[in-house]
């Protein structure tokens, strides 16, 4: 039996009927066509399904679809505002993207980190991103991208 849910995705209210045995990730990808969040391990280990739920990064593969009722979700599609989000730009410029499969999750976690702490140390960045696996980059460029983005946001605020 499908369950009615109402929630907000990337600023747009959505009303859907979902199967309880689907996850939030299934709903985003299959029902809403938002293919940014990826299905990697499906077990909450790789982090590529990370979305922001009510202000916090979560593994959307472990959240049952009906639990999204009433929530506010941001996916990687919701970041760009006419032009790419500063975090997306920084990832591109620093070469923090190789195969790209982990990138949407990395960017969502990184954005959530900067929302919580505008000037994180390298250690704090690595700790925050430790639930996001990347098999290509070796992480160095990803950490640099987050640092660059943080600096830019700080400078823009100061300007």
């Amino acid at each position: 039996m499908k369950i009615p849910i109402e929630f907000v995705v990337n600023g747009e209210p959505q009303a859907l009927f979902v199967k309880p045995n689907h996850t939030l990730l299934d709903v985003l990808r299959d029902d809403l066509g938002l293919l940014g969040a990826k299905k990697g391990c499906g077990e909450g280990k790789c982090g590529t399904c990370t979305v922001i739920m009510d202000g916090k990064p979560v593994n959307s593969c472990l959240i049952l679809a009906p639990r999204a009722d009433g929530s506010d979700i941001i996916t990687v599609e919701g970041l760009a505002d006419g032009e790419p989000h500063p975090m997306q730009k920084a990832f591109v410029e620093q070469g923090a993207v190789q195969c790209g499969f982990c990138t949407p999750g990395m960017i969502m976690t990184a954005c959530a980190l900067l929302d919580e702490k505008s000037d994180p140390s390298e250690e704090e960045i690595r700790l925050a991103l430790s639930g996001n696996l990347c098999r290509c980059t070796g992480y160095a460029k990803i950490v640099e991208a987050v640092q660059v983005c943080a600096q830019r946001i700080q400078q823009d605020k100061g300007a």
């Binding site: 909450g44 982090g47 979560v58 593994n59």
Partner: peptide, 9 residues
């Protein structure tokens, strides 16, 4: 426990 994402849920 887990990761930041896990601890949030």
């Amino acid at each position: 426990i887990g990761s930041w994402q896990i601890r949030n849920s």
